[in-house]
Design a protein around this nucleic acid. Sequence first.
DNA 1: CTGAAAGCGCTTACAG
DNA 2: CTGAAAGCGCTTACAG
Lengths: 340, 340
Amino acid sequence: MSSPPPPAGRPTSKDVARHARVSQSTVSLVLAGKWRGRVSPATVETVRDAAAALGYRPNTSARSLRLGRTRTVMLVVPVLTSPFFGAVHSGAARVAAERDFGVVVYPTLDGADLAPNAFSPAAIDGVLASSMAAEPLDVLRSAGPGTGHLPLVMLDSEPGHGLPTVNHDVAEGMRTIAEHVVGLGHRRVARLRATVRTWTFEARDAAFRAALGPAEVIAEACAPLTLGGGREAALRLLAAPARPTVLVCDDDLQAAGAYKAARTLGLRVPEDLSVTGFDDMRYARVVEPELTTFRLPAVELGARGMTALLDLLDTGDAGPDVVLPGELVIRGSTARPVPA
Amino acid sequence: MSSPPPPAGRPTSKDVARHARVSQSTVSLVLAGKWRGRVSPATVETVRDAAAALGYRPNTSARSLRLGRTRTVMLVVPVLTSPFFGAVHSGAARVAAERDFGVVVYPTLDGADLAPNAFSPAAIDGVLASSMAAEPLDVLRSAGPGTGHLPLVMLDSEPGHGLPTVNHDVAEGMRTIAEHVVGLGHRRVARLRATVRTWTFEARDAAFRAALGPAEVIAEACAPLTLGGGREAALRLLAAPARPTVLVCDDDLQAAGAYKAARTLGLRVPEDLSVTGFDDMRYARVVEPELTTFRLPAVELGARGMTALLDLLDTGDAGPDVVLPGELVIRGSTARPVPA
DNA sequence: CTGAAAGCGCTTACAG
DNA sequence: CTGAAAGCGCTTACAG
């Protein structure tokens, strides 16, 4: 009664079955954890030992083919080479890995445009899409996701379109920033806004204006969320005759650009000009003085979004929409305005 | 002679065959581009039209199962939430997409440790691994990749271990930085090194010391590549009685931390202290004065590495090892030392 | 030039 | 409690 010879290549469930002297079906049942009431505990033990001895790991392609599901989801983000979306990816990938799902990333801006055929239902089970502009969102929806064929969860996007959403509380963020600067005594405010017209930035601006109280936006400009973009736009805003005493930006990097503009104009932060950012990315603490900003839990956004998507896949229900609280972080870039 | 009814779910090659009134084999041959000399041009046309009409896309799981290859590779990086590795990923993912490969990312530090079973030959065709410490590299190699079973290409790693490598010219980088600061007249140098002992940092340090000429390293410290790490270590280095006139860091973020230390001690950059970084990540231009650093083409590193890996998969040959040139970027953080 | 058939490795009714 | 069999959708010898 000698053991069968070790199999040549990578072991399959057939090899495990031979080794354990049971059928392939039994192996499959045991390893999938569906054996209760169908396979005897002794056999279960034997099968597990055999699988461990051979170093068996199921072939995912075969399983996917059989089940019609791939245990792979797609994460759609504007760019991956930004600290914000890098963090979102990180959180999403961790949750996916815990639940034995793979993640493929689709950056809509980095590479090509959103191709309709990018969403192959054969290759992915669902989509998690973040911070999308209206147009690519339409492409996405008409391509399958969200239509019932391919589950879709939105991140950092307008709620109420019949899609599950997981959002940062950006409105609360801008409200607290407004209250902070107004509370310091600022009345002449400049706004540096993102050029990109996605929901998150529209929501920020609306919330900011609504919370301004006695203060007034005396100048406004749009700029890309880059250092150079922030600098150029801030230069224009600060050159106006009636100078603002505070500059409220949509992003930390933009705010870092504003620092450059202030320096060029000989303005000190915060003595001559207060500046605020948004996100609390690493830039916020690199600059000097360190930046007052609103911290967004980007890793958690990705994690909660992935949880909602996988729940949707498993149970058909993504759960209620989520709004994650952030936190105002007061640092050295905001101070009382000097009396004019 | 009516057309067959449209298939119910997602169309398969069988549906295309039925639609085009040919066999499944013919469909497969045509769509795989292997029809020359075997299928008539007219039939090819018919098949392509049918595939387009039905919106046919081959099932990747079935193809993977049949071929024993998945067209998926794994990218192993220490962390993904760093601008450097984000850029590496970006370049690698672009090339992979162009050649119709998918990429799964495995961050060795972000999540769990490198698990031996992470490398399932059933799920991936090859591995691209970047900047690994010696120990996880051993795990990686003993787990399959590089042993001939699973193709492996190394990024930013010591060449000459029998594995194809694609590297930045970090030695040239540190040499040009040394020449730059020595050329400015600096003779008392402090070195702020990375705590992590990977090849890239050992190579940097060796090259730097070899190129120092008349100058001398009078103080040295190790710190993690973070803002706080750089600040703490720089504080210690600059407190020494015989103060260095220049601080040479292993990384831009570390250098930004050194700025903080200098400010704390009342030292002006570059008047009282010159500082250099490495990488030319975005931080380098966020700080004030902007940082003199050595630019590493991280996106291209990822792209070239992925090209080598896919060549290895396709042809069995990754091509010769690659060393990508970088570029010294002189900005405002370096100046002549004040005569003591 | 074209088609019928086998088989990749799984999972899941179904039969015993 | 266990096993034999079908079939997911492809690709590729093989036969004609």
